[in-house]
Design a protein around this nucleic acid. Structure first.
Length: 267
DNA sequence: GATCGACCAATAGCTCCTTG
DNA sequence: CAAGGAGCTATTGGTCGATC
């Protein structure tokens, strides 16, 4: 499925939950509660998981090396990092034998390519700093144990967050424009870890999906010029979405992977 | 007196374990 | 081996002091 279609589906399901206070055959007290159930079911984020998985397959990765497989939500691979073990949203495993080794520290485990995927559609401003901490702690947790491991992160944010108060009354209301600049700045700061022996807090490649859900067909922003044109970041901004957009996401990760571990291990 | 920023806490749905 | 419960986590809502 194309990303455009997926975003449309996400918008639709999210807004239907808010407007009807229903999700998955259950009726909730209000639209906000139904939306919570939808988010917590992981249904929405799983669309993005599958998109990323499909993109890896397009880029040459073997289907059977991806965990959980396309269209499946388990088994997730739990990898023991420096401080804690954590399930990986998308893991690409060069050799099946590694799967049994992820609960302890085996150096070959670093050959597993891992991508985490998350979203935040409301309360962005309030939580930006919780997000900072979580996001970079997760890369650290793995890189401190596995310095060469190739890590990716995909984060979906709206240009205008959904208003949580309006949801209580089953209304779709968008707040004024999100602090998109802050998000870009923060993700650029932890993006493109080039060398395997430093900057453990960085990801090898991050993708920030900036989407305007106010449009009937949600609009995905892949360059700063468009953001400026639509008044979403100041015209004089020095920021860029270079290496932060979805274009070449899988290819970039694979290219770093191939440099570190040799060509073709994931095909 | 409205908005912002920083920090904390809650909770549903999932997974996994236990128990009968 | 089903049912129930405990534990974990992602996401986001509440609050309070600072700042505009």
């Amino acid at each position: 499925m194309s990303l455009e279609k997926i975003l449309k589906k996400i918008k639709n399901e999210f807004e239907v939950a808010i407007k009807t206070a229903k999700f998955n055959g259950n009726t909730y007290d209000n639209g906000n509660k139904a939306k919570e159930a939808l988010i917590r079911s992981q249904k929405i984020i799983n669309y993005i998981h599958d998109f990323v998985k499909e993109d890896f397959i397009r880029a040459g990765v073997a289907k059977n090396k991806i965990y959980p497989p396309v269209k499946h939500t388990n088994p997730e691979l739990k990898i023991q990092g420096f401080l804690k073990a954590k399930n990986q949203d998308i893991a690409i495993v060069p050799d099946k034998a590694l799967i049994k080794k992820t609960s302890e520290h085996f150096s070959e485990v670093e050959k597993i390519l891992s991508v985490n995927v998350r979203s935040q559609l409301s309360s962005l401003a309030k939580n930006i700093d919780t997000l900072y901490e979580r996001t970079f702690a997760e890369a650290l947790n793995l890189h401190l144990s596995y310095p060469k491991q190739v890590l990716g992160e995909v984060y979906l944010i709206p240009t205008h967050e959904y208003d949580d108060k309006a949801m209580l009354k089953n209304k779709i209301v968008f707040k004024k424009v999100s602090k998109i600049e802050n998000y870009i700045k923060m993700f650029q700061a932890i993006n493109r870890r080039g060398s395997a022996n430093k900057n453990e807090y960085k990801y090898e490649r991050v993708c920030l999906l900036i989407v305007d859900f106010k449009n009937k067909s949600p609009k995905l922003y892949s360059d700063v010029a468009s953001l400026i044109k639509d008044g979403l970041v100041p015209p004089n901004t020095s920021l860029t979405l270079e290496n932060l957009a979805i274009n070449n996401f899988a290819d970039d990760l694979l290219s770093i992977y191939n440099d570190r571990f040799g060509e073709g291990k994931l095909n």
